[in-house]
Design a protein around this nucleic acid. Sequence first.
RNA 1: UCCCCGGUAGCUCAAUGGUAGAGUACGCGGCUGUUAACCGCGGUGUUGCAGGUUCGAGUCCUGCCCGGGGAGCCA
Length: 552
Amino acid sequence: MARPHALARGTHGPSGSPPHEDSLTTFRCGASTLLPALWRGASSRLPTLWCRASALHPDGDRRRRPTISHRSPMRSLARPLPARRPRPACTIPCPGRKRSAIIRPPGPLTTSPPPFHGAPMDAKHVYVEDLKNHVGETVTIKGWLYNNRSKGKIQFLQVRDGTGIVQSVLGKGAVDDATFAACDHLPQESSLMVTGAVRQDARAPGGYELSLTAVTIVAQAQPYPIALQEHGVAFLMENRHLWLRSRKQHAILRVRAEVMRAIRDFFDSRGFVALDSPILTPAACEGTTTLFNVDYFEDKAFLSQSGQLYVEAGAMAFGKVYCFGPTFRAEKSKTRRHLTEFWMVEPEIAYATLDDVMNLAEEFITFIVQRCLERRREDLKVLERNTALLEKIRPPFPRMSYDEAAKWLHDKGLPFEDGNDLGSPDETALSQAHDKPLMIHRYPTKVKAFYMKPDPQRADRALCVDVLAPEGVGEIIGGSQREEDLAALERRLEEHKLPRAAFEWYLDLRRYGAVPHAGFGLGVERTTGWICGTEHVRECIPFPRMMYKIYP
RNA sequence: UCCCCGGUAGCUCAAUGGUAGAGUACGCGGCUGUUAACCGCGGUGUUGCAGGUUCGAGUCCUGCCCGGGGAGCCA
């Protein structure tokens, strides 16, 4: 009862019309085992695509795949390729011939697409993560082939569906021979639907497996670039859109999603109003860092580096607010801690002091970590994270003033100059020395932003706090009590040489009912990276944006 | 912007200045419990680019390009 499926038709373009070249990329003409006689006859005229390395670039030459960089924006896409030894645009293996054939552009498709193999899917569709509730039932998993270990007359198809991976066992005779043979040649990441009885079996990774009675191949993949082997970072980054399917990346991004949900749950349940700040802004919030420029009609604008000034307005209106969104920094930082686009949550509270936000940060971090332990333990296991270290993350967190930190660094013999901001190596050393987040407060006023309130006890120290995650991770929170005095703030703007006109609205917040207030910002990717034990923040966001890197 | 490391097959990597080679992926064959399965067979190539030294350069020198890590700055 094999029949074409809507999904399959979709991959071949409208029936009877010439397919778009791209639409052909989902099947291959070398797959004669998949095709009935009529279709196979047509396949010799079909152009497609079983190129060894054409997954990323239409000319099949991986070395020319688009790499977009600051110095050579869109170079490989914008310029014609240099003249060189002619290469086949696309090749297919031809039985009986040593060399691959050169493929001509596609002609019109006149035959119908190949039918699927296997029985129609009348079994209940379930997700891999729910399989344990369906032992003994016959169910269908819809997903992609993670790996196939073929052992002659028995095949072990490992199918992933986004919620997990399940091993399904296909014995010869369980399905028709054509389907069995097709499965034996299925490349990694081919999409397929498998139907079978759910069994508990200790031999299966994950503990449950399927005894298959039907397999439907939705789309046979081209050879998948990301093999089950080690790959270099550069290669994986250029294949980020596919890398997301890998187990570790999958686990990290699920933890990230949990972190984001925990953030919202924490503030929403405490009476904070979500008040989003603009992404397009007229001026720098802090003045010191480099911003991305944007043409804003006839004017100039910037991508926001912080929503803080705007949530201050929000706090005066709603009492407790937070903004949560992307933030942009154009600094040329090339380290494992930096992205040019990252997500930040910034709570701001009226009538709050530095101590209030330090206490809040402590509760907040604890909430996020414990939530991930509670709900994403399996992912942390995939990541081989030492969760015992995370279990310890509960109040109180150690607190240290800047002066105490400076003394600690001196005692350790680290080259640190009093009065300077803490450098990266300093923070790393401090962070490594603690097994809980370390709160360092009251940095020198001169190294901090203009809006931070100086300590009334000591004007050369600001009422601010940085929270350093342990294990050498470093800063995940920066916060402060804000300067609420109009005259003092005006002086600070001048000292920082900031354009006053752009800040008039901000000064208004002091003119009309100023109150003490405070807040902080937490970086989502750094926090996720700490919880996951990830080496680099680029793995903690689906499509990282970094210096000179904006593809894919 | 500065400092350090790197660029060889689609991918991961070898190769005293002397014939560019493995594993993997891919293809074919074998195998009814595999765990990145295994066994046999099949060939990968402008050694990042441009010069230079040399009888001879993947290897040494110079410049450039690209990538990675770090400093500053920051979440």
